[in-house]
Design a protein around this nucleic acid. Structure first.
Lengths: 205, 205
DNA sequence: TTTTCTTGATTGACGGATCAATAGAAAACC
DNA sequence: GGTTTTCTATTGATCCGTCAATCAAGAAAA
């Protein structure tokens, strides 16, 4: 019984089902049929709305990135000091919403996809640029001309910790992961600015 | 024209072809037939020697890890100071042999595989443990009780920088990558030990 | 003659994509 | 107000391709 205006609802459901399905399986054998079944529709409908499989993946990834971006913006809005701004960006990467097995799997899939799909590659580059730019801007008051360099490093640390913590067995610990990244930040600031010049609130352990 | 003693030769060729093929394509559509063709044999022979596709991948990954291990060991043997030991471990990760597009693709594939295959997961855990242990051991004279923690961080930084630098367009710059990782090391040592307490031979630029 | 090496041919399964067809909603027309 | 047309939504069936894996057989060495 076709009610009209289903398109956005179906698209949303399919996107969500895509991420869930990628998380449920290892991401190798994610079929359109399975995604569709999880969303409660036929595979034909998935093709009807997205065209092909790659577009489904891309849509799912855009959704993930957009949610991440929203979290970053929300965190930045609440932050008062430069330091808090950096922390907000870092913490967003390890929040409940994104530091999950399913999302990690989606990221891996995305990385792989980016090696063959122009669109995926562009999307990835945009994400990379944006996070570095955000970090650099937040870091400028703290690190001056070194901000860009530290931002680049922090971005890499975030990715590395995300990957390692997420791939290790056991539930990923977002708080610990964020702590580790921020410890690197503290070390960089201390080392470059001389001890006692900058931050005072180093997180222990 | 079957000559005897072909087994090790074929296996080696197939393993090499696997990595090359993964690198050539994006790693999504790597088929046994393609690997076999690249190695100059039939797909049936690949199955004959490896049993199934997963075993081919695992063998390729073991090979990659073993080469990496050899490079680390060679570097460690040549190193005289603790600092040089750490540098050797870091540099091995960004050497000509491993910091290539093809190997990066193989790693991604491996990560994905590790989410579904027990054997791959075990292999990955072993690699993770080993690199952290190596780093911690080398760091102990430099950082004392903080060695383990710094080692964990450095391992994550290596992974993150590897991924970012490798995925970005353009030829990956191993030297720059290693420099970035070592900069984190310096920062950590300076911050924890107080400036001037530990290292003196910071690599410039 | 047995063992090792090798492949072409085949199979069974699966997956992405397409298509024709159905069912209701809305709009247009009389 | 009723009828026809048009649109959206939706699916089952199906096509075409691919791929991992198997098999039977051949060719050379031992």
């Amino acid at each position: 019984m076709p009610r009209i205006g289903m398109q956005p609802i179906r698209r949303k459901a399919l996107i969500e089902a895509t991420i869930d399905e990628i998380g449920a399986r290892g991401s190798l054998d994610v079929t359109v049929a399975r995604i569709a079944r999880r969303a409660g529709v036929s595979s034909a409908l998935a093709h009807h709305y997205f065209g092909n499989k790659e577009q489904i993946f891309l849509a799912a990834m855009r959704q993930t990135l957009s949610e991440y971006g929203a979290e970053v913006r929300a965190g930045l809005k609440a932050a008062r000091t430069p330091r808090e701004r950096v922390e907000a960006i870092v913490r967003a990467g390890f929040s409940e919403g994104h530091f999950r097995s399913a999302v990690l799997a989606a990221w891996l899939n995305f990385y792989v996809l980016a090696r063959t799909s122009r669109q995926a590659e562009r999307l990835l580059v945009v994400y990379h640029r944006r996070i570095v730019a955000n970090l650099a801007q937040a870091l400028r008051p703290l690190a001056g001309t070194a901000a860009s360099d530290i931002a680049e490093t922090l971005a890499a640390v975030i990715d590395g910790v995300y990957l390692r913590e997420g791939l290790g067995q056991g539930t990923p610990d977002g708080a610990a992961a964020a702590r580790r990244v921020l410890a690197v930040l503290d070390a960089e600031l201390t080392a470059r600015g001389g001890p006692g010049t900058q931050d005072k609130d180093r997180t222990e352990t």
